[in-house]
Simulated scan of single mutants.
Amino acid sequence: MMRSLLVRGMLAGLIAGVLATLFAYFFGEPSVETAIGLEGTAAHSHHDTGAQDPAAHDPAAHEPAPAEEEELVTRGVQSTVGLLTGVGLYGVAVGGLFSLAFAFVYGRLGILRPRVTAALLAGGAFVVVFLVPFLKYPANPPAVGQAGTIGSRTSLYFGFVALSLLIGILAAAFGRKLADKLGAWRGGLIASGGYVVLIAVAAALLPSIDEVPAEFPGSTLWTFRLASVGTQVVLWTVLGLAFGALSEKALTEKSLVRKDA
């Protein structure tokens, strides 16, 4: 049965990845194109003002600049096939992990149908794995951020994701125990409150990153980040609904077979 759930999870992840790609293409790529254009304009302006730089009087400065390296992958391929490949593979991987998490929590959250369990799990995963880390370290479009800090920014983001996931798992386990004593509603509220408090303390202790140039258009930044959130909303919503639909029939049939036996 575990293998069957894994296959269904990866299939649901693939469906979610395709739909998330379509959303990202239509709503996210325009802001990416704008940011890339701004980056090119800034670099061109810097090159044009080079004559005012004292270093321009250096004989070495008059040597011909090396030819620009040819793009291995064109922007057109990146925004279509590359985007579909990246988001699609991400969706398949997340779908596989989602099926494992579902197999662990199914039946442990009370008497809930597979569709409901999958929907609740997808909603919780969206908040813990994406939304909370995003609020601390939001995504930035091209031309935003310093090249020398890419490694540290990446480490901080994924470290915060892991921390949020760990606190979320502990809160869920604690809430399940409280539910037996105080009821599902009170237990869930206390566990959720504990998660919020702990993750808020962690976010306050971790360093903040603000590398957005003052001249960068706020509308472009807002559109890009809104599209990033929307892409993840589509991914997790479709994943939860698709996996619930694909798994419910199999789990229901298995339950009926056990009763007949």
Rank of each mutant, 00 (worst) to 15 (best):
R3M: 14
V7P: 02
G9R: 00
M10V: 15
L11N: 02
G13L: 08
I15L: 15
A24W: 06
F27G: 02
F27V: 10
P30V: 03
E33Q: 07
I36D: 14
I36E: 15
G40A: 12
A43H: 08
A43W: 12
H44E: 15
S45P: 00
G50A: 13
Q52G: 10
Q52K: 01
D53Y: 04
A55T: 08
H57F: 13
D58M: 12
A60N: 09
H62C: 10
P64H: 12
E68S: 13
E68C: 04
L72M: 08
L72H: 01
L72N: 01
T74M: 13
S79C: 04
T80A: 10
V81G: 03
V81C: 10
G82K: 00
L83V: 06
V87R: 03
L89V: 12
V94S: 11
G95P: 00
G95A: 02
G96C: 06
L97E: 11
L97S: 02
F98N: 02
S99Q: 03
L100M: 12
A103S: 14
V105Y: 12
Y106M: 10
G110R: 01
R113K: 06
T117P: 07
A118F: 05
A118K: 00
L120I: 11
L121T: 01
A122D: 05
A122F: 06
V128K: 01
A139M: 15
P141E: 01
V144L: 07
Q146D: 15
G151I: 11
S152R: 07
R153I: 13
L156R: 04
L156A: 12
Y157Q: 08
F158C: 04
L163E: 07
S164M: 13
S164T: 07
G168A: 03
I169Q: 09
I169T: 05
A171K: 05
A173K: 03
L178A: 09
L178Y: 08
A179S: 15
A179N: 05
L182A: 10
G183E: 10
G183S: 09
A184S: 06
W185M: 13
R186V: 14
G187K: 00
G188T: 05
G188F: 09
A191Y: 06
S192N: 01
S192G: 05
G194Q: 03
Y195E: 06
A203C: 05
L206D: 06
L206P: 03
P207M: 10
P207W: 07
I209E: 09
V212L: 08
V212M: 04
T220H: 01
T220S: 11
W222D: 08
S228T: 08
T231L: 12
W236I: 00
T237A: 14
T237Q: 01
V238M: 14
V238L: 14
L239G: 02
G240P: 06
A242Y: 07
G244V: 02
L246M: 12
S247H: 09
K249W: 08
A250S: 09
K254A: 15
K259G: 13
K259M: 15
D260I: 13
A261G: 10
